[in-house]
């Protein structure tokens, strides 16, 4: 079987030179520093003993940091995938071959996800320090990685979508960021506003809140993956809901529904992109 030439080329050229190793080095250095700060802070605390429960916080912090990394990096990698080819005047040379546009789109998406996953995989040894103290199991870690992968796929697909629609990369990048942030946090804000307005007008909580809006948000799904109890910004928008389990979906965790949503939307977007860049439809 032949490797997708787009994946082969992009992975080779992007890993060439000093940029990629430097980026990974700084990234791992930063994560290491973060964990070190946690340890130091804990050891020299007022109680003067090491609390193993600290590692759950370390895990959640690093996981959140990596989730933010996916949200920030993936759009830049894919939102230029097709528009960049247009700007470089290389798209025609791709499309005049008999290579299918579906494989071209898949290749571009895999390359962008691969870069994000490389950063995350490289951080595994650092993240594994949490196993030393218990509290976090291998299943938790695998679930987190699966969620990262699906979220990266969704964001990469969105970037690809706007990259095929707009001719210029800066426009495509900006629109992708707006869309991603809207999906992540706009949905939470929308849900919060709905609850507040409903309560203000009727004086009671809605019987059937807009849960489906929340399920489209990877941020909501992520919160349930790392098992947060609804603290922080997300809880503001979830007043009145039993966080983590919602009866409307038969006690299915939000991250599972969000993952299913992301996969379906990504597939639809990829099919559309492949159709859109096809010159003779």
């Amino acid at each position: 079987m032949q490797i997708n030439p787009i994946i082969e080329k992009d992975l080779k050229t992007k890993m060439r030179g000093w940029k990629a190793p430097t980026l990974i080095t700084f990234y791992l250095g930063f994560l290491g520093f973060l964990i070190w700060v946690f340890f130091i802070d804990n050891i020299y605390s007022a109680y003067n003993y090491f609390d193993p429960r600290l590692m759950t916080d370390v895990f959640k912090t690093i996981a959140s940091f990596q989730f933010g990394l996916i949200v920030l990096i993936t759009p830049v990698l894919t939102a230029t995938a097709i528009s960049g080819e247009k700007e470089r005047q290389t798209l025609d040379l791709l499309l005049c071959t008999d290579y299918s546009t579906f494989k071209i789109v898949i290749g571009k998406i895999v390359v962008s996800i691969a870069h994000v996953l490389l950063l995350i995989t490289a951080s595994l040894p650092i993240l594994s320090t949490v196993f030393l103290f218990g509290g976090i199991g291998i299943i938790d870690m695998l679930r987190l990685f699966a969620f990262y992968l699906v979220t990266a796929l969704l964001i990469a697909s969105l970037g690809m979508l706007f990259s095929t629609i707009f001719r210029r990369s800066p426009v495509s990048i900006i629109v992708t960021y707006i869309m991603v942030l809207g999906l992540l946090y706009g949905t939470l804000i929308l849900h919060g506003l709905y609850l507040i307005l409903y309560q203000n007008f009727t004086g009671q909580m809605p019987q059937a809140p807009l849960y489906w809006v929340l399920y489209t948000s990877p941020a909501f799904g992520f919160a349930s993956v790392i098992g947060t109890d609804g603290g922080g910004i997300i809880s503001v928008f979830l007043t009145g809901t039993a966080y983590g389990r919602v009866a409307a979906f038969g006690q299915i965790s939000p991250w599972i529904i969000n993952t299913a949503f992301s996969i379906v939307v990504s597939i639809l977007i990829i099919i559309f992109c492949a159709w859109k860049i096809k010159p003779v439809k």
């Binding site: 032949q2 030439p5 290579y99």
Partner: peptide, 22 residues
Amino acid sequence: FFGVYSDLKVSEYMNFYSGLYG
């Protein structure tokens, strides 16, 4: 008018397109 992938060597450039043509 056409562009090239500046970060590829000549042989890699040709190899890339031969891959696309199967």
